[in-house]
Design a protein around this nucleic acid. Structure first.
Length: 1116
RNA sequence: GGGCUUGUAGCUCAGGUGGUUAGAGCGCUACACUGAUAAUGUAGAGGUCCGUGGUUCGAGUCCACGCAGGCCCA
């Protein structure tokens, strides 16, 4: 039984090998099955859409998901993870339209809805194979064999069942939403359609600054000087045709407003107007500011004005005014000032006219403030806005009845007597002393790409989910969710919930879940269908009543099939399906239920898997999946949908730019994995930055990760395998008790247990980055660069005794533990490592690291004293190395002693315990300690600012200065008596305790020293004859070792050495250190002979040495 | 325009609760080491901690206002 040894490890190939092993032995399935009966850890897979190819950011998102599922499996939980596919929605439809070269209007004409949807169904899974391939290659474990697919009937049926529940709870209603609307085309336009090139055109519109007259009621009187004053709000609009629909004015909360006394430029009437302070100069000519109000004559070009008072927006909120154009009356109190966060002083007057039916902001701010819209009844008795769908004013707007609000009927605008509706409105307002300023204004405005006419923002029928009804509960439950990072939960998501509006569910499209509501034409009767069975019943009923010809079989719940179903109402009228589809986000938000076909079946499975313990997606999903999951869970189950969530950031290119295929800076995940292997890619992404920060992806970083972390770990394993194989170490022996292991063994085991504890805590806290960094630091710094380096000789020298076994066991334990700790992040390499180790030792019955359990931490093995000692040893060694460097004395040259000033017995004991380590590491014979008794210890005193600041506060500086003045005697007195009085002012003293200062050692007179923190080290650089010889001997060993290597000798081969006589000190060194040299170089003999032939000339400092090594003995 | 977020060495990042000489890795330069060797060690250079104010005895850290990048939403 041998440990596998690798020459040039190919990490990509390793990935493939491990993948094959997982497949052959069903390791993923076993990782779930072996936890049967244990506690569940519930994970939800956010479904990707397979209509595009996966990118490198998917590797990031899925690594984050995978890590915690694997971690929880290690901890003994059973983690089922059902895969899923998001298959409906606009992106697929647009892609199909593009490929077919058609537009939305052509669907149902050039191509049947049936054919179109078939095409969508095929397109949406087009890249499924690539996705599956990436999932597998990157080591993302998720059940791809039984995924949920949102276009399947059962999934849609679940959505229907959920919608019906919402419907029954009264959460579903039909209402208005403001959408871009083209009267010419008679259709609403999507935001996508508005972003077509050429849609935004420069137009010159008639704009009006209208005067809204304040009511003279008690509530408002603070704005009036006297009963006779006429006070108006000024509000600017580029769409005068919306003025008849005005029901409110919006101000900015923090904006400053002023009241200005002046005259109306058209009627010359004396007026007071209110507008934003910053915009006064835009409406009043500065030249008029010195003219007295009384000096004004009607018709004067310069109109005097006088700023008399100032208010904030908050002051104005709630103030009531008279309706501007009183054609139609509201059904609730209106015509008052509200606060809107969209109000600015960029243009206009700082006061915004609100018409809830003709603007999205208007609609929202009105709803938030319970301001009604102005509506009239159409011929069917249904409410409608003041403009009809053809773009004409309704008859109730008497003065303008039947007029198109924009030029939709193709009038000749260049005709001399042409007046647009906007102009006519302006004229009327001027005459009524309601217009303050009328002017042409040039700006961009969206136009319909089909009719080239300006669009209207117009309310259209939509179905809504009344999320506002559970707003408070959603906010409350959100506070129980553990968000990573927290700010996304409290900020981005929390603020979004605070400003929640009802969920607009309707989409006028074809490929998606149809809204399962059938309605009579008058809207009086309707039914919401919750299952196929229920639909069948209704169909049977409709057939009985003669509304449908034959009973249809329901094979597909998509359009157009469901549209062909006509049901019958209780009163005997036909009911047609509401033609909308539902928002695709409902599909994905419904996955906790629909993935199990719940609530139609699998109640128990659902209950065991709700809510999720953990989900993770990109932060861009905050208002997408994270929201819909939460909203549905609160409304349906009065519960959170997930307890822990990581919102990960974006993956940008190395310069911080967004990756895009167009710019050519996108990174192909397959290429990355193929080149560096999946582990290095995963590790780099996780260790480089916390997942919730954006990641600047740089392939150089992957290379570095591979070299620095995986390279070092692999080197350490190789080292272990090399010697363990020579010694046939199979971990057959019983564990050597800790107390019989060396100081460094116990140290690395202490460090290892600390690591096991820390990494567990980091994973439990959903912080994979800290876990990865802790593991990486342990492997590179503690294990490889210190433990292995210090202990190399134990592995390749001496007999196979307890000490050697202890060394093997220690290193083995470290490697095996690292395999487990790192396995969630680097599942492939750690699998190989675990299996290579376990193949020989058979310590674990589990065939895979992913079936193993998280290591138990041994608190007894954690020894902080020991860790402190070793840190001291590392510091001392580093300081000595640094001193050697300064004196140009190489490490091979032994030195007699180092001096270390110690300020406490504790420090002295700590260093003494690791003396041997230090001495061998820095090649020095003795360590001497200088303490108070030596008489040469010089101390340095420094204020402890933290402590002094707390005690002395503002006087701290005086005390600190006094401390700096203390001499050696003062320091000694402070230490001896535990207190010292310093003078900080003429008549003020302060008493210091040893806690108030930090005492360290300073230079040792006559020595060159190096210091780090409180530690100081001096080095005796006297090189005696004997030391010199020993140095030469070590150099010789080094040269002979090189010769051995050059001669391709195996480590265990024995040799004989012949050497031509050299300089006297070299010859002396050979004589005096022959045994040492032979032992080090596996030499059976070392002889100095004259007249050596076939030797090699070696350069060694100032010496030249001619020598020969042989594997067979020679007669001298 | 609003919300959230980031800004520390050439690059990637650490820097609980404020404490006086701001760290690591990579890269660069020099030197050393050489039976882990496509490894390793030591040292050096490299910083207006984005800016401006403020709080404080003391600010990379707390507060305010800006600037720049990113995401989401208008």
């Amino acid at each position: 039984m041998k440990y596998n040894e690798y020459k040039n490890l190919n990490y990509a190939k390793l990935g493939d090998d491990v993948l094959a092993f997982w497949k052959e032995h069903n390791i993923f399935q076993k990782s779930v099955a072996t936890r049967e009966g244990n506690d569940n850890f519930v994970f939800y897979e956010g479904p990707p859409s397979a209509n595009g190819t996966p990118g490198i950011h998917h590797v990031m998102a899925r690594a984050v998901k995978d890590i915690f599922c694997r971690y929880k499996t290690l901890k003994g939980f059973q983690v089922n993870r059902k895969g899923g596919w998001d298959t409906h929605g606009l992106p697929v439809e647009l892609q199909v339209e593009k490929e077919l070269g058609i537009t939305k209007e052509d669907i149902g004409k050039k191509i049947t809805v049936e054919e179109y949807n078939q095409r969508c169904r095929e397109t949406v899974m087009r890249f499924k194979d690539q996705w599956d391939d990436l999932t597998e290659k990157m080591g993302y474990w998720v059940d791809l064999d039984n995924p949920y697919i949102t276009f399947e009937n059962e999934y849609i049926e679940s959505c229907w069942a959920l919608l019906k529940r919402l419907y029954d709870k009264g959460y579903l209603y039909k209402g208005y939403t403001i959408q871009p609307y083209s009267p010419g085309a008679g259709t609403g336009l999507s935001s996508h359609e508005l972003n077509q090139p050429g849609c935004y055109q420069m137009v010159k519109d008639t704009t009006i600054v209208a005067q809204f007259e304040l009511k003279k009621i008690t509530r408002n009187m603070f704005l009036f000087d006297n009963e006779d004053e006429q006070v108006y709000f000024l509000a600017w609009t580029t769409t005068p045709w919306t003025l008849p629909a005005n029901t409110a004015l919006a101000v900015g909360k923090g904006i400053k407003y002023v009241k200005v006394k002046t005259y109306n430029p058209y009627t010359y009437a004396p007026i007071s107007v209110i507008l934003a302070k910053d915009l006064v100069s835009r409406y009043f000519n500065d030249k008029a500011k010195d003219i007295a109000l009384a000096d004004y004559n009607p018709g004067d070009k310069l109109i005097p004005f006088n700023v008399v008072e100032e208010f904030t927006g908050a002051d104005l909120a709630g103030v009531e005014y008279h309706q501007l154009m009183p054609y139609v009356q509201p059904d609730k109190p209106a015509f008052r000032v509200v606060v809107g966060d969209f109000v600015t002083t960029e243009d206009g007057t700082g006061i915004v006219h609100i018409s809830p039916t003709f603007g999205a902001d208007d609609f929202k701010v009105a709803a938030q403030n319970d301001i009604p819209a102005l509506l009239v009844m159409d011929e069917n008795g249904k409410p409608m806005p003041l403009v009809d769908k053809q773009g004409r004013f309704v008859k109730e707007v008497t003065d303008f009845a039947g007029m198109y609000v924009k030029n939709y009927d193709g009038q000749d605008e260049s005709a001399p007597d042409y007046k647009s509706t906007d102009v006519l409105i302006a004229i009327k307002l001027k005459e009524e002393n309601k217009a303050f300023k009328v002017e042409k204004y040039e700006h961009t405005y969206p136009h319909c790409w089909r009719t080239d006419k300006p669009v209207l923002y117009y309310p259209l029928d939509s179905w809504f989910i009344r999320t506002t009804a559970v707003k408070e509960r959603m906010i409350e439950l959100n506070k129980t969710i553990n968000w990573k990072p927290e700010s996304t939960g409290t900020g981005r998501f929390g603020n979004w919930l605070e400003n929640l509006v009802d969920w607009n569910l309707s989409r006028s499209r074809y490929w998606g879940t149809p809204l399962p509501i059938w309605r009579t034409e008058d809207g009086e009767e309707e039914v919401c269908i919750g299952s196929i069975a229920e639909l069948s019943e209704h169909i049977d009923h409709a057939v009985d009543k003669g509304f449908m010809d034959v009973a249809v079989e329901i094979n597909d719940l998509h359009r157009p099939y469901v549209d062909n179903i006509v049901l019958v109402s209780p009163s005997g009228k036909p009911m047609y399906r509401e033609p909308d589809l539902i928002d695709v986000w409902f599909d994905s938000g419904a996955m906790p239920y629909a993935q199990w076909h719940y609530p139609l079946e699998n109640k128990d499975i659902f209950e065991q898997n709700f809510p999720a313990d953990y989900i993770a997606e990109g932060v861009d999903q905050t208002r997408g999946w994270f929201f819909t999951l939460h909203a549905l869970a609160v409304m349906l189950e009065d519960s959170v949908a997930y307890k822990n969530v990581i919102a990960n950031g974006l993956v940008l290119d190395k310069n911080g730019n967004k990756m895009s295929k167009r710019l050519g800076n996108a990174i192909d995940p397959f290429e990355m994995i193929g080149q560096y292997g999946p582990d290095a890619v995963r590790w780099y992404m996780i260790a480089n930055a916390p997942p919730w920060d954006n990641l600047k992806f740089n392939a150089d970083g992957v290379v570095e990760t591979q070299r620095r972390f995986f390279g070092t770990l692999q080197n350490t394993y190789s080292f272990f395998a090399l010697y363990a194989n020579l010694d046939n170490f199979t971990y057959a022996e019983a564990d050597v008790p800790l107390e019989r292991r060396t100081e460094s063994d116990r140290w690395i085991i202490s460090k290892l247990n600390t690591l096991v504890q820390d990494v567990d805590a980091y994973f439990a806290d959903y912080d994979p980055t800290k876990a990865a960094r802790a593991i990486q630091d342990f492997v590179t710094d503690d294990l490889s660069n210190w433990y292995v380096r210090l202990n190399r000789k134990r592995f390749w020298k001496g007999e196979y005794n307890e000490d050697k076994i202890a060394a093997y066991q220690t290193l083995y334990t470290c490697l095996e533990t690292i395999a487990k700790l790192a396995s969630p992040i680097a599942p492939f390499y750690t699998e190989q490592l675990y299996r290579d180790l376990n193949y020989v030792s058979r310590k674990h019955k589990e065939e895979s690291v992913h079936l193993a359990y998280y290591p138990e931490v041994s608190l007894a093995a954690i020894n902080e004293d020991l860790e402190e000692r070793m840190a001291l040893a590392q510091s001392v060694s580093s300081l000595v190395h640094s001193l050697r460097k300064k004196h140009m004395i190489k490490v091979r040259q032994p030195l007699q002693r180092v001096l270390i000033p110690v300020l406490s017995e504790h420090t002295k004991h700590q260093i003494q315990a690791v003396e041997d380590l230090i001495m061998s590491e820095v090649n020095v014979k003795h360590i001497e300690y200088i303490d108070d008794t030596s008489g040469i210890l010089v101390k340095k005193i420094k204020p402890n600012f933290k402590k002094l600041g707390q005690v002395f506060g503002p006087k701290m500086k005086l005390v600190a200065a006094a401390v700096q003045q203390m001499n050696q005697d003062d320091i000694a007195k402070l230490e001896r008596e535990g207190g010292f009085e310093v003078l900080i002012a003429d008549d003020e003293t302060a008493v210091l305790t040893p806690d108030d200062v930090e005492i360290s050692s300073e230079d040792i007179p006559g020595w060159l020293v190096a210091s780090e923190g409180k530690l100081t080290v001096a080095l005796d650089i006297t090189i005696t004859e004997e030391l010199k010889q020993e140095g030469i001997a070590r150099d010789l060993v080094n040269r002979i070792q090189n010769l051995r290597k050059d001669s391709n000798l195996e480590v265990q081969d024995k040799i004989h050495i012949l050497m031509q006589p050299s300089a006297p000190e070299v010859n002396a060194a050979v004589e005096n250190f022959r045994n040492y040299i032979c032992a080090e170089t596996q030499a059976l003999s070392l002889d100095i002979v004259d007249g050596l032939a076939d030797g090699t000339l070696l350069e060694m400092d100032e010496y030249q040495i001619y020598m020969q090594i042989r594997t067979e003995s020679v007669a001298v």
